[in-house]
Amino acid sequence: MPAQTNLKPVLTAAQINLLMETVFPQLNESAAAYEAIDVFPGGCIVRLNAGERHLRPGGTVSGPALFTLADIGGYVCVLSHAGPDALSVTTNLNINFVRKAEAGPIDGHCRILKLGKSLMVFDIDIVAGPEGHTIAHATGTYSIPPQSAANVVK
């Protein structure tokens, strides 16, 4: 399915990172692990700076850490394209793990497949290592609450 082509971001990656520090401080409370790297029409790039706390025995980045990266990719896309409504929530997230990943930067390349008034459907390719191999792929849906001045973070 091709991505939706008529989308324009309303927030930059820097604005998203600042917004997430404000509305979701527990995400990076002990270290700046998750961040928005880039926002562009119809998508974004997010990063997990995977360290010791993200590893399971054997030195592999844990599934929950990669799942969180996929979810953050969707959150960054919905915030950057539908507006800074912090009450947007995940309604579905499905992930397939393809390869193991070691500590270091892990990037999620997220694209919006469909952005409507109440739902956003996206997919994300999670890549790592010097060759940028896919280590996981996820698809998800975010619910966008009805527009209300009370929901929008300024």
Rank of each mutant, 00 (worst) to 15 (best):
A65E: 07
A31K: 07
D123C: 02
L18S: 09
P105F: 14
A86D: 06
G74M: 03
V89H: 12
L18G: 02
G58N: 11
A149N: 04
P145Y: 09
P130D: 15
D71E: 13
V153P: 00
P146L: 10
T139C: 01
S80F: 01
D85L: 13
P9D: 03
L79S: 09
K8W: 02
L48K: 04
R111C: 06
A101D: 12
L55A: 14
G108H: 09
L66G: 07
L87C: 13
H54D: 13
G140Y: 01
N49M: 11
A33I: 01
S80K: 01
C77E: 02
I106V: 13
I124R: 03
G63P: 07
A32E: 11
S30A: 12
S62L: 14
L66K: 06
R56C: 14
Y142T: 00
A65H: 08
P64C: 12
V127H: 04
G140M: 02
E35C: 10
A32R: 12
G73R: 05
R53E: 13
G140W: 01
A136C: 07
S143Q: 13
E52N: 14
S118Q: 14
A65P: 09
G132I: 11
G83M: 13
C110E: 04
N151A: 11
V76K: 02
Q147I: 05
P130C: 03
G58L: 11
L55N: 12
M1K: 15
L27W: 00
M20D: 01
A150S: 10
I37M: 09
A31G: 00
F67K: 00
L79G: 01
H81Y: 05
I72M: 14
Y75R: 05
I124F: 06
E52R: 14
N92Q: 10
A32K: 10
N17P: 09
Q15A: 10
A138D: 08
S62M: 15
G83F: 12
L66S: 08
Q26T: 11
L79P: 02
